Structure formats: C-alpha cells, structure tokens
Simulated scan of single mutants.
Amino acid sequence: MEWWQLLLIALAGAAAGLINTVVGSGTLITFPTLLALGIPPVLANVSNCIGLAPGSFAGALAGRAELAGQRARILRYGAASLLGAVVGALLLLRLPSAAFDAIVPVLIGLGVLLVIVGPALSRRVAAYRERHGQQADTSGPAWLWPAIVVTGAYGGYFGAAQGVLVIAVMGVALTETLARVNALKNVLTGIANGVAGVVFVLISEVDWVVVALLAVGSVLGAQVGARVGRRLPPKVYRVVIVVVGLAAIVNLLR
C-alpha cells in the first residue's frame, strides 16, 4: 500500500475508536474504508474485527467508573457475548465468501438504519422506564441473556452497529443510567470483537498491517472519545456514520 493509504486506515481506526466509545457503530467507518482500498470483503471484515478489539477494551477501561458495581453483569452477559461471538465468527468463516459478499450491502444498510433510529429507540427506552418505575435491577430478566447471545453472534459475523443493538436491548431490560449501560456495552462489544478475533487468528487469513494500524488508531481514538468526544452532540457522529455507510452501499452496488 501507499503511505497515504496506510495513514487513511489509521485515521479510520481512530475515528472508529472515538465513535465506538461515544455512540457505537465505528465499523461503519472502517469497513467501507478497507473496501474502498481494494481489500476483499471477508479479509476486510476479519482484519477490521481484530484491529478494533483493542479500542473497544480501551473504551471500556476509560469508562471504568461507570462499571462500578456491575461485576456480576459483566460476568453473566460477557459469557453470553462470548458464546454468540464464537457462533458468528464460525458462520462467517464456514459460509461461502460469496454469501458474505452478497449480504454486505444489507448488513451495512441495517447498521445505518440502526444508527438512524437510535434516538427513537432511546426515547422508547426512557418511556418504558418511566412507565415501569425506577426500581433497582441487579441482574435483568431471563430473556436478556439469550438476547445478548444474539447480539454477540451479530458482532462476531459483522459487527456494524452492534453497540446500538446492545444499548437498545439492555436499556429496556435494566434500570440504569445511559452512561452505565454504555460502559457495559463497551465491555460486551469488546468481548465479542476479541473472541471473534481469536477465532479468526486461528483459522483464517488476516492482514496484520491493517490490524496494527486499526489497533493503534482505535486505542488513541477511544482515549479521545472518553475524554472529549462526549462533548460533541451524538448527532454529529450519526451523520458521519450514515454518510459513509450510504456511500459504501452505493459503491458496492455499482
């Protein structure tokens, strides 16, 4: 690759790390960037997943104050996210690559849609909480564990807007502040990325240059997101994500 292409990947990783820490869906920045540089879809997805995992964990560590008292949830739902991620990663590697190539525009479109409807989901969650009161909830309903397995599988297979899905599900199930739910989301998506990444390393081809650039960029971006990124309106991030996602869909369908 040319030097400017390497720089572009690192910058995309930084943007994804920042966005993932604040609102999620950073994959909708990095994945289209890798496709635009000519990297095959499955290889791009595998390398993207591994490269963004360090940023997810960095974002989780940066928000550790909001994780206080959530150890039991991390263990319970971390196991669910782990299981789902393994299933999703194996599906990605075992299904024909042509199947992934065909479904990529649909997955990106789903991610963009989730980003667009995210504010409406948040309002519905707030209304649900108001109707059902604010009693303390230490573990969550029985349906939450399999729901996190499903979001983990989605993250292991592709991952775009997984964070939006996790926040929507946990926001309904748990009576918590958005900050604490978001911190838990960062842990669960980090687990999904990390576990899927391990599976990919063991049985798939990986572009390690891309991984290294995304990893460094995403960790730096996560630190920025934790410190100053929340000062910007989430709408700014959503607009960027939607524009890049739609551009990727148009490019893939040409």
Rank of each mutant, 00 (worst) to 15 (best):
I116T: 01
V22D: 11
G84H: 11
F100Y: 11
G171E: 14
L34W: 05
G118K: 13
L8R: 09
V164T: 06
T30E: 11
G78I: 00
T138W: 13
L8A: 15
L82Q: 05
T175R: 14
V243I: 14
N186M: 14
A36V: 08
A44G: 07
A248T: 05
Y157P: 05
K185L: 09
V242D: 10
S97T: 01
A212F: 09
G51D: 10
L7A: 15
A168D: 12
A168N: 10
G111P: 12
V216D: 03
A16W: 03
G155A: 15
G13Y: 10
S139Q: 14
G24W: 12
Y154Q: 06
P233I: 06
S56A: 15
A147E: 08
G229L: 04
V219M: 14
V86A: 09
G63I: 00
L91N: 03
F158N: 05
T21F: 02
P32C: 10
L202M: 14
G133R: 11
R123Y: 04
A102R: 14
I9P: 02
A85T: 08
V250Q: 10
V106C: 08
F100T: 02
G59M: 08
A153D: 10
L83E: 07
G26E: 09
L188T: 03
L8G: 12
R131M: 03
A142L: 15
L92P: 02
T189L: 04
S47G: 12
F158K: 04
T189Q: 05
A80W: 11
V115R: 09
L107W: 05
G229F: 07
W143T: 00
S25T: 09
T177N: 13
A68Y: 11
S25H: 13
L83M: 14
G109T: 05
V150W: 13
A60H: 10
V23F: 08
G51Q: 09
A10T: 06
A44P: 05
I39Y: 07
V240Q: 01
S204D: 13
L214P: 05
M170A: 12
L83F: 15
S204G: 15
L214C: 03
S139W: 12
A161T: 01
V199M: 09
T175V: 04
A44S: 12
E205I: 00
G84V: 03
R94W: 10
V42K: 02
R254W: 15
G156F: 11
S97C: 01
I108L: 13
F57A: 03
L35G: 12
R131Y: 01
V206F: 06
N186W: 09
P32A: 13
I29N: 07
V211I: 00
L52P: 02
A53K: 09
A16G: 01
R129V: 01
G78S: 08
A215N: 06
L213A: 14
A80V: 00
L75E: 12
G63S: 15
L34S: 06
